[in-house]
Design a protein around this nucleic acid. Sequence first.
DNA 1: ATGAAATACCTTGACAGGCGAGGTATTCTA
DNA 2: TAGAATACCTCGCCTGTCAAGGTATTTCAT
Lengths: 111, 111
Amino acid sequence: MSISGDTLRGHTDTIILTQLLRADNYGYEINKKIQQRTHGQYGLKEATLYTAFKRLEQNGLIRSYWGQDGPGARRRYYSITQEGRRRWEENTREWAATRALLDALISIEEE
Amino acid sequence: MSISGDTLRGHTDTIILTQLLRADNYGYEINKKIQQRTHGQYGLKEATLYTAFKRLEQNGLIRSYWGQDGPGARRRYYSITQEGRRRWEENTREWAATRALLDALISIEEE
DNA sequence: ATGAAATACCTTGACAGGCGAGGTATTCTA
DNA sequence: TAGAATACCTCGCCTGTCAAGGTATTTCAT
C-alpha cells in the first residue's frame, strides 16, 4: 500500500462502484477484492471505506441491506443503483480525460 | 476547465515542477502555459496556484526571487531546486504506478 | 479451555489541499 | 479615460482521507 491516498483522492467512489457492477457485496469483502486486484499494493482504510459507503448511499448511487443471519458476523450488503451505473460511466470517462491531461502536463516534451 | 479539482488533487505540485524543469518562470505565466498545453481544458485557480508556490518553497523544492524592475507589474520568479528535481522524478514515477493501479481498479475485466 | 487473530461493522476529530471571494497595484487598449 | 489584462496575495470554508478508538462474533493454535 505504498500509494499515497491523496493521489487517488476522489476516485474512491468509482473504485467501489466498479466492484458492485458485477454483483452485490459487503464492505469487508469489497476491500479484499481491491487488495487482490492490486496484488496488495492498495487497499482502502476502513474509515475511508465506510465514509464512502455512506456518501454513496446518500447520493443514491448504492443501496444497502443486511445479509441473511447465518453464522458469522453480520454483513451489510450493497447494490449499485441505476443512477450509480450512470455515474460510474461518467466517472470512468472523466478518468480517461484526466489521465490524458496529466500525462500531457507532466511530460517534458515541447508544448 | 471541466475537470473537477479533486481528481487532480495532489498533482498540482508536480504540474508546477514540470513547468520549471526547463526554465525559471513566474506564476501567471506558468498558469498560462498550463492552460495552453491543455488547450484551455485545465488551469489552476489563483488561490491554488499561490498556495502551491508557498508550499513548494517551504518544502525546499523551489526558490523564488523578484524579477528585474522593468515596465509592467512586478513578477516573482521561481526556480526548481535539486531537491525539486528529485521530487519531480519520484512523483512522475508514482503517477505511472497510480495510473496503472486505477486502470486496473475501474476496469470491468475479470480479476 | 482460552486467548489471540480474523472477520465485520462503525464513529469521531484532526488534517490538508482546492478554491470562492475578496483585496492591491500596474499597464495596456479601445 | 474607463475597463480589461497583467500580476501578486490572503482568508476561511469545504471535502475526502485516515489514525485512533470502539463493538461483537467466530476461528484457530496452544
